[in-house]
Simulated assay, not measured.
Amino acid sequence: MRVLVVEDDVKMSGLLKRGLAADGLVVDLARDGELGLEMARSSEYDAIVLDVMLPGRDGFEVCRALREDGVWAPVLMLTARDSVDDRVRGLDTGADDYLTKPFSFVELGARLRALARRGPIERPATITVGDLHLDPATRGVRRGDVEIELSPKEFALLETFMRRPGRVLDRYALLEHAWDYGYERRSNVVEVYVRYLREKVDRPFGVTSIETVRGAGYRLRRDGGAVA
């Protein structure tokens, strides 16, 4: 199992290398975020250990850049800061796990082995279908460079479509993913909100992305929209 450790503190990086090597792992070291990015892009790693407090580009920025570059090796972030906001930010930028210093090497090794078993599964922080982009963390939506304002329910419905491009979703599947059980299943709420979405993400741009599949439901085109 080959692991990349991105840590600027010389003493800590040495401890990490020795501790993980004693656990049978092959460890490469990078002392800053830029070098870590370069190494992760050029070599295949089973997991990446990424310190949050790096000089220049911090660990959050490095993790986001890795995902944007299509590097899907599992990432475990290390930090001395134990705030909920930091953990949330790390996970939202594409990290898979989070460990607070000081930590046990036994636990670190076990977490890395668990991450390696998952493998490099694509899980981008931002969902993109064609030129339509959705960021679940910031609740932001844009087509190309144009920001689109959506209500919470419109956002939930669009996210449901964008996580399943090309798939036909019937009204019950859409209700299950975007509404709670308080909604009347026989109402036309799905049809109403699909119409709202089309008015915001399609019509102003002269495209058709959300298609009606007669007798079956709705589908988001894989290309994110065709010229109407």
Score class of each variant (00 low, 15 high):
Met1Gly: 15
Met1Ser: 13
Met1Thr: 06
Val5Pro: 01
Val5Asn: 02
Val5Arg: 06
Val6Thr: 06
Asp8Ala: 11
Asp9Glu: 13
Val10Tyr: 10
Met12Ile: 15
Ser13Asp: 09
Ser13Pro: 00
Leu16Pro: 01
Leu20Lys: 00
Leu20Tyr: 01
Ala22Arg: 09
Gly24Thr: 02
Leu25Phe: 14
Val26Gly: 08
Val26Ile: 11
Val27Ile: 15
Asp28Cys: 01
Leu29Lys: 07
Asp32Gln: 09
Asp32Thr: 02
Glu34Tyr: 06
Gly36Trp: 10
Arg41Met: 13
Ser43Ala: 14
Asp46Met: 11
Ile48Ser: 06
Val49Pro: 07
Val52Pro: 04
Val52Tyr: 08
Met53Leu: 12
Met53Gln: 15
Leu54Val: 10
Glu61Lys: 11
Glu61Ile: 12
Val62Gln: 11
Cys63Leu: 09
Arg64Gln: 08
Ala65Gly: 00
Leu66Gln: 06
Gly70Gln: 03
Ala73Asn: 03
Ala73Tyr: 07
Leu76Phe: 10
Leu78Lys: 01
Ala80Ser: 15
Arg81Asn: 04
Arg81Met: 11
Ser83Thr: 15
Val84Thr: 12
Arg87Cys: 07
Arg89Ala: 14
Leu91Gly: 04
Leu91His: 03
Gly94Cys: 02
Ala95Thr: 11
Thr100Ala: 15
Ser104Ala: 04
Phe105Glu: 08
Glu107Val: 02
Leu112Lys: 12
Arg113Ser: 08
Ala114Glu: 10
Leu115Val: 05
Ala116Pro: 02
Arg118Tyr: 10
Thr126Trp: 03
Ile127Pro: 03
Val129His: 02
Asp131Lys: 06
Asp131Ile: 01
Leu132Phe: 05
Leu134Asp: 01
Asp135His: 09
Gly140Pro: 01
Val146Gln: 15
Glu147Ser: 14
Leu150Ala: 02
Ser151Ala: 14
Phe155Val: 05
Glu159Val: 07
Phe161Glu: 09
Met162Ala: 13
Arg163Glu: 11
Pro165Asn: 04
Gly166Thr: 03
Arg167Pro: 00
Val168Gly: 05
Asp170Lys: 01
Arg171Gln: 09
Ala173His: 06
Leu174Met: 05
Leu174Asp: 06
Leu175Asn: 12
Leu175Gly: 11
Tyr181Ser: 14
Tyr183Arg: 09
Tyr183Asp: 02
Glu184Cys: 00
Glu184His: 07
Arg185Gly: 03
Arg186Ile: 06
Ser187Val: 08
Asn188Glu: 14
Val190Leu: 10
Glu191Val: 11
Tyr193Asn: 14
Tyr193Arg: 05
Val194Gly: 07
Arg195Met: 13
Lys200Asp: 00
Gly206Thr: 07
Val213Leu: 04
Arg214Phe: 14
Gly215Asp: 14
Ala216Phe: 10
Tyr218Thr: 00
Tyr218Cys: 05
Arg219Ile: 03
Leu220Ile: 13
Arg221Met: 05
Arg222Ala: 13
Gly225Asn: 07
Val227Pro: 03
Ala228His: 08
